[in-house]
Design a protein around this nucleic acid. Sequence first.
DNA 1: AAGGTAGGCAACCGCCACACG
DNA 2: TCGTGTGGCGGTTGCCTACCT
Length: 217
Amino acid sequence: MGRKVDHDENIKGEMIMKPLEEAVLKDMSTTKKDVNKGTWTAEEDRKLAEVIAIHGTKRWKIIAAKAGLNRCGKSCRLRWMNYLRPNIKRGNISEQEEDLILRLHKLLGNRWSLIAGRLPGRTDNEIKNYWNSHLSKKIELKDRQSGASEIREMYVGEKRKVMESKEINLEVMKEEEINGCNGGEGSPSGSFNVDDFFDFSNEDPLNLEWMSRFVQL
DNA sequence: AAGGTAGGCAACCGCCACACG
DNA sequence: TCGTGTGGCGGTTGCCTACCT
């Protein structure tokens, strides 16, 4: 811990500790022994939401201490992100959303947070769970029905290679952009543009037309 | 009605990347 | 440049509930 913490809140409203708060944190800091685990209670949810309403969602360790919960910061963050955050949609994943998940997964693999970023109100955890419990089985069934499992195994291997090279390409593209050597008409990045892909502006997120630019099912 | 099993989901774990001193 | 703390992510676990025998 070498970080300086004796500040007040800054203009952005980010949470920064005063000396007293530092002492509180010290008192509240939990050892692995006494840390609370398992399902969250309504009371814990309420306390966490209260603290976040005041201090925002930075410095989860401090938030955990301030809320007076014997929870680690990670646990608080997870609870907020997956359950308490405003505008969270729960359950009832529509056909449109399912289609989008399938396409995105085909394109991105198990990059759940990226996929979730394309589905407003959905969390990476929910999509991951939905995939594991519904979609993966659906795909398996579909494969079996079409008798394509062997072909698929080959395909999956090939796809993995492609994905890996695509990941490399994404990194290269980002780097090129940072270095200012991408974006010309002679750009080597081909038809897949990472910024187009992650540009959420000016579009209905559930409209799949944008997706068909990138991947077909 | 009771016990066993499978499915769904919330939460934890461990790793990695990044920021900061 | 290096060490440390923290947040973010994907994989995994374990609990709860519904369904089946």
